[in-house]
Amino acid sequence: MVATILLIVHGLVAVALLGALTHQTLATWAPGRSGSFFGRFRRVPPASFANAVVILYVIAALLGGIVYLYFRVDIRPSLERAGHWPALGFFDIKEHFISIGAALLPAYWVCWRRPRTEEPYRMRAALTGILAFIVWWGFLTGHVVNNIMGFGS
């Protein structure tokens, strides 16, 4: 029961993080000009998302780190017995990516909140892109692995 609640909260925080990072990434890489839905989606001020992204990433990673204990004991053995090796491989990659992304957060925050004039804009864009890739990878992998076992199994 505790694991299920934590997993749902972890998922909800991840959705918020995904939204914030996707907004910021698109606004950084392809700023919107038109007044269409997609144009407005990309016209947000990207720097304003930095604090939220850092806080949400840390919360999602901490919750994920706790849920991972339940996963290792209750879920992974079943996946191994069922031979879901690629899913476990994708999940391992997710853990590695999340750690590397977490270590980039201080630099990401500095680049957005304390930018320097001589600092290339592409550095901010690259860091945001890397974090967005990591969060999308983590979200989709977690979603697929959760779907394999099914809710409450």
């Binding site: 750690s99 590397i100 270590a103 980039l104 201080p106 630099a107 925050w109 500095v110 304390r114």
Partner: peptide, 13 residues
């Protein structure tokens, strides 16, 4: 802090 953050992120990876 900027130098710390940049060195930490790359070294960690």
């Amino acid at each position: 802090f900027r130098r710390f953050a940049f060195a930490y992120g790359t070294a960690f990876a």
